[in-house]
């Protein structure tokens, strides 16, 4: 029997579409709010709501430590978590290339549901379109989500204050490194898994320890370096980093050494940058070190009044240099 594939008929709105939705999506995303109607009807408690959306294209769609489905849930859950919002409901929209293997679609849907469960979020509506062969790269997913912002929580990239500490919740660069090794034909082998993870639990535990957190950002595309530059600009402050405090796994360091790359610019999908008052550093670290995804959390620097808009690095010889501004495509180099 030949392998079952997604066909254009699955996107035509007729019997096959209904079958696809029933057999793949309803089967996995079953929950009371999952709608067969045109829109999900939800009741939300009083209070502030955060809402976000994110599109996912990743090649390859399956990688060490995750797949595009898990990624599409984590991305939106983490964006909500960064605002101190408990993720409640999500929608997901699929664009699938004709010929995509059905079992892979099932694997992706199962992974989405598992990740959503872990994050405590419900997938309540979805959409499927099938694109002709060559009109999409295997599968694209767009998710949107809403979350309820915890009472007394107020985070923003603009709220970093001089004297605050800068924390990363895990060792950096693993997702970017994983994808680079799988995508490029570089012949390098390393035991590196993407850090892709839903981080509401991480944020919830931090907020339980203290509500006084000024900034939470997930260090996705562009990595920690890029996020720090964003925060420095939005808050109008300087950020001073200690080069030797950056948590980087040996294998990521090795790959970066081979290719002349800097882990500060590699993407993460399960690592946050957290900025909080100095006197909260200890309790935050203590909390994070107990967490499933944040055992390697570390203070990597502090917010300064001087060097506004800039990220400054204290190097291993004790001198201060500017962290180069991130930009452009990451290119392996020999010189």
């Amino acid at each position: 029997m030949s392998e079952k594939k997604v066909t254009l008929a699955h996107g035509a709105g007729g019997r096959q579409t209904a079958e696809l939705i029933r057999e793949v999506f309803q089967a996995h995303f079953s929950n009371p709010e999952f709608t067969a109607d045109d829109a999900a009807v939800l009741s939300v408690e009083k209070g502030r709501i955060a809402m976000t959306t994110d599109g996912f294209i990743v090649s390859p769609y399956e990688f060490n430590g995750g797949n595009i489905g898990k990624l599409s849930i984590c991305g939106t859950v983490n964006d909500l978590a960064c605002m101190g919002a408990k993720p409640l409901y999500m929608t997901c929209s699929f664009i699938i290339e004709e010929g995509f293997p059905m079992d892979k679609l099932e694997m992706i849907a199962a992974s989405m549901e598992k990740t959503a469960k872990e994050a405590g979020v419900r997938i309540v509506a979805g959409d499927t379109k099938v694109a002709g062969k060559g009109q999409a790269d295997h599968i694209f997913i767009t998710t949107a989500g809403i979350g309820r912002i915890e009472e007394g929580v107020c985070t923003s990239g603009a709220f970093a204050k001089p004297g605050d500490v800068v924390i990363v919740t895990g060792d950096i660069g693993r997702h970017g490194c994983t994808i680079l090794l799988e995508r490029e034909d570089l012949g390098i082998e390393a035991d590196i898994q993407s850090d892709c993870a839903p981080l509401w639990g991480t944020v919830e535990s931090m907020l339980a320890a203290t509500k006084e957190i000024h900034v939470i950002r997930d260090a996705t595309r562009g990595g920690v370096g890029t996020v720090l530059y964003e925060i420095a600009a939005e808050s109008g402050v300087g950020i001073s980093l200690d080069a030797q405090a950056l948590p980087v796994s040996g294998a990521v360091r090795g790959v970066c050494g081979m290719l002349g790359l800097d882990p500060l610019y590699l993407a993460n999908e399960g690592t946050l940058v957290v900025i909080a008052p100095k006197d909260k550093a200890e309790v935050l670290l203590e909390t994070l070190h107990k967490g499933k995804y944040s055992a390697k959390a570390a203070v990597i620097g502090e917010v300064t009044e001087e060097n506004s808009g800039k990220v400054v690095m204290t190097t291993e010889i004790g001198a201060q240099t500017l962290l180069p501004q991130p930009g452009g495509e990451l290119l392996p180099r020999i010189c």
Partner: peptide
């Protein structure tokens, strides 16, 4: 060769 866990020929 192995550079702290990254291997290549």
């Amino acid at each position: 060769v192995d550079a702290s866990g990254a291997k290549r020929e």
